[in-house]
Design a protein around this nucleic acid. Sequence first.
DNA 1: CGATTCTTTGACACCTATCAATCTTAGTGG
DNA 2: CCACTAAGATTGATAGGTGTCAAAGAATCG
Lengths: 240, 240
Amino acid sequence: MKISCDTCVVRNRAICSVLPDTELLELNRIGRRRHVRRGEALSLDGYEELLCANVLTGVVKLSLQTRDGRQQIVSVAYPSDFIGYPFTQDTGKHGEDIYTVEALTDAEVCIYTREAFAEFAETNSRLKQELLRRTTTELERARRWMLLLGRKSARERVASLLIEISNRRANLGCTALGASPMHFTLLLSRQQMADILGLTVETVSRQLGQLVNDGLIAFPSVREVEILDWPGLQQAADAE
Amino acid sequence: MKISCDTCVVRNRAICSVLPDTELLELNRIGRRRHVRRGEALSLDGYEELLCANVLTGVVKLSLQTRDGRQQIVSVAYPSDFIGYPFTQDTGKHGEDIYTVEALTDAEVCIYTREAFAEFAETNSRLKQELLRRTTTELERARRWMLLLGRKSARERVASLLIEISNRRANLGCTALGASPMHFTLLLSRQQMADILGLTVETVSRQLGQLVNDGLIAFPSVREVEILDWPGLQQAADAE
DNA sequence: CGATTCTTTGACACCTATCAATCTTAGTGG
DNA sequence: CCACTAAGATTGATAGGTGTCAAAGAATCG
């Protein structure tokens, strides 16, 4: 189903925002807008591992997993975020590790085949520039997360995740998604938090409980977080 | 000290290889060639955390560390590799985490300030394209490593590292650096291997010993690796 | 409301970290 | 060239943090 970019809710924030109308029209031609339900995997008829996408609404996770089912979430994409590796010779598989893109909430995305998107971007310097800026940001984020995964304790990891989520919401101006940076709805299940943090569900649950006991956060409901002591939480994320 | 790019040993493989001579000259003007000794940190007079560089010879590591000294190596750069984040508003510091660039061997690098390099690249589409390609590759590599750090056992990690090193040497055509992909000199100390893998020195040492006992590898000397059973090592990297 | 899924909690085991000692390698100066 | 010294690597004993397994308690959804 093709829809004009005029109706796009992230027209001014997504990667497309650097394009003038004429070029946007061309990009629109090679893209497909798609609804995905919560939990549904993103695919494009036979191009499962070779696609790119803009997230319009909702939240989408990108994860890698081993053959025997261990999963690591490597990226969480919010509205206006771009996912995929348009410029790489890669097949999407590395050894036995497999990429998966799955919606954390009902979501709307704009999908391109890697090939088509790359071909288009090839000729568009501004798009390349913007893609480069975003890829760099993602690389920094990934590397910072490597420090967390390699060197931080369970308590530090859980605290860090809450801070990261709160910060990203703030950067996105997510008052629309509800409330302040000090009080928000978790879009992740405990299992998904564990898959981001390289922990088990049980450990995440216990550490969250500990943070509650320490008076740093509260859970009005199981999916709602309230940060009671921001400096304290930040301290818990760094050391101790 | 400025030196013409004509004498550059990675002229045809580094990021500069996409530039015609005229533009290369311009890039040359904003860069400085530098020798760094093994163990020496890379810096550019007051711009410590805001630089970019091409590696000409030798090997350089990029690492993040927490305030209390825990370190995670996030990237190892070989000759012709580019390091740095030219396109980002970032300061190089995230919370309390600090970036460090340090030579693993005596090395020669070509340094630019982030600002100057970004300004130059801004106007050069081909350079941007190449930078995008490389950044994407690095992002993929970082994310694959996240799976390792978050979900793999010590044995799997150590085996994975040996394979990764061997593969990268092969891709670089490192017969020059000595011998085949099945027999090479480790440029990393045990501690550095640990810092890449999110483990301790002792655990790395024990796992290496185990791989030797299992007949998968051998150590002619403490820094020389010989892979005896490639499929077996690959299997050890994935599961079991 | 009933059934399924998700979350929490507990007991226990195991992997890896920590601490400490020994051994090896590399670097230095006589 | 060798002895000396410091740094790096290995090995052992122990401890502690997470994982695993199991069960009970919420929450969600038809």
